[in-house]
Design a protein around this nucleic acid. Sequence first.
RNA 1: CGUGGGGUAGAGCAGCCUGGUAGCUCGUUUGGCUCAUAACCAAAAGGUCGUUGGUUCAAAUCCAACCCCCACAACCA
Length: 475
Amino acid sequence: MFMKKTYITTAIPYVNGVPHIGHAMDYCLADVCARYYRARGDEVRFQVGTDEHGNKIFQKARELNVPVQEYVDTNAEKFKKFIAKLDISYTDFVRTTSEDHKKRVREIWQKLSEHIYMAEYEGWYCTGCERYITEKECKENNGVCPDHQKPYEKLKEENYYYRVADFKKQIREAIESDEILILPDFRKKEMLRLLEETPDVSISRPTSQLSWGVPVPGDESQVMYVWMDALSNYITVLGYPEQAINDWWPAMAQFVGKDILRFHAILWPAMLLGLGLPLPKVLVSHGMVLSNGQKMSKSIGNVVEPMEVIDKYGLEAFRYYFLRHVDTFADSDFTWEKYSDAYNNELANDLGNLVQRLATLAKKNSIVVEQPLEGLTPSKEYCDLMNEFKFARAFDVVWEKIQSLNKRIDDEKPWSLAKNGETELLDKCMTELIKDLLQANYELIPFLPNTAERIVGIFANGEIRPPESPLFPKG
RNA sequence: CGUGGGGUAGAGCAGCCUGGUAGCUCGUUUGGCUCAUAACCAAAAGGUCGUUGGUUCAAAUCCAACCCCCACAACCA
C-alpha cells in the first residue's frame, strides 16, 4: 500500500544550557503537525536532536572539569528526557557529535568545496572572552572589554567562507514564488531583504580559536563553525550522502524560532542548492514566549521553567496552553494567571465537565452507542487551518465544538427526557451528543493525544462510564 | 530618516486586503438550570477603533503626516 512520506524537522538546540520553554514550543508545534499528518495516513519521519560543538560548550566543560564528550552526553540526555516528557512523537534523534553525523558533514563539505574559499578575517578580539566582537560593541565599550577590563586587540585569522552569492538569485526566486513557503508571510519579506545584504558566510575557525568541532576535510588546522555543521543535521540524520534520501527529502515542514529563520531561509537553501538537493517546502517560524510581557531573561529574573509549568497541571495542560493560547507565529505572553485561567475555565470546566456530565447521563440511563468511532473524519475548516499551519486557530475551531456541546445539552435537557420516560428521544439525543463529542475528540488527537485517548476509553469502549477521577481536576 | 511587527471595552485578541449600524474570549453584574468538577446556559454593562488631516454619500477599514510600544540588526529560542 502506498503511503505518502512526510518529513518534519525541528531546530536542534545548543546544549550548553537546560531545555527552556522556547524549545518546548518548537517541539510541540512540530509534534502536532506530525500527529496530524499521521492521522491523515501519511508515513511521518520526525527529526529532533542536539547541536553539540563550539567554544561555549568546550569552555563550560573545562570549567566543570569534565571531558567535553561526557559533558555533551549528559546534556543531550537532558534534552532527550525533556522531549520524552513532552510526549513528542519523534522518530529520529540526531546528535552533531555522533560519528555518523561527523563523517557525513565532512562529505557534505567536500561536495560543496567549489563554493568554499579561504579569506582573511580581521576584527576586534577579547582574549578574556576568547571571541571576536563587533565594531559597534567595541565602540560602545570604548575598546575595553567590560568583563575582563582588557583592551580589545585587532586580530586577523584565516577562515573558510561559503559563497552564498552563487545562489542568491535562485534563493530569491524560490522565496518569492513560495517554492520555499515562509510562514508567517511578513517574515518572507524580511528574509528577502536580508538575503540581499547577506555576505558570504564564515564557516570555519582555526583550531587555535576553536577546537571542539568537526575538522575541515583536507585542512586539519580548521574546524567547521556552527552553521555548516548544525544545518546539515536535517539530512545527515536521513543518511545523506551515502543513502538516497529522496523518499523523505525535501522536508514537508521545518520548524524554527524566528531568531534563526535567517539561517534556514538563506544559508541552508544555499547549501542545498550547492548539493543539488531540493529545497524544503515550508519554513515555519514561530514567535517567542514572553513572560509578563517581556522577553525571558536571567537578568530580569522572569524565566519560566517548562518543568515547573508541566508539574503544575500536567503535560496535557502544558500542551493545551502553548498550542492554543500561544500564537503559532507571533510572540505571545505567558503568565501564571493566564495559565491557571485557561486550565480551570477551559480544560476543567469546558471539556472536563462536559465529559463528566455526558458520561454520567449515559451511565444513569444505560445509553449504548453503536460503533461510536465509525465514520469520523476531520472537518474541512479544521483541515484547511491545519494545512496552513495555523494550529492555534484550528485548536479554536475544535474548542468551539466542545463549547457548543455544553449549550446543546442545556437546550435539549436529556435529564427531563429521562424523567418523562421519553426513552427513545433520550437515546437519540444522547447518541448524537456523544457522537459529536467523539468527532471533536478526533480533531483533538494531535493536540492532546492522552486526553483524546481517555475520552475514547470512556465513550467508545463498551459500556459508558464516567472517569474514575476527573479529567482535569480544578486547581 | 536602519528593517519588521503592533496601538480596537478592565485584560488578551479578531475585523482592515475586497469601505456600509463595532465583534470574540476572559473578567464584572444579573437571571435561568440541576445531568455535571459550585461546573453549564442566557442577558446586561463597558469602546470618540493611537493622533491629525485627506478621499468618499459613508472610514477601524483607503491615502498622507505624526506620536507611542515591541522585536530584529550583535552566539540569551
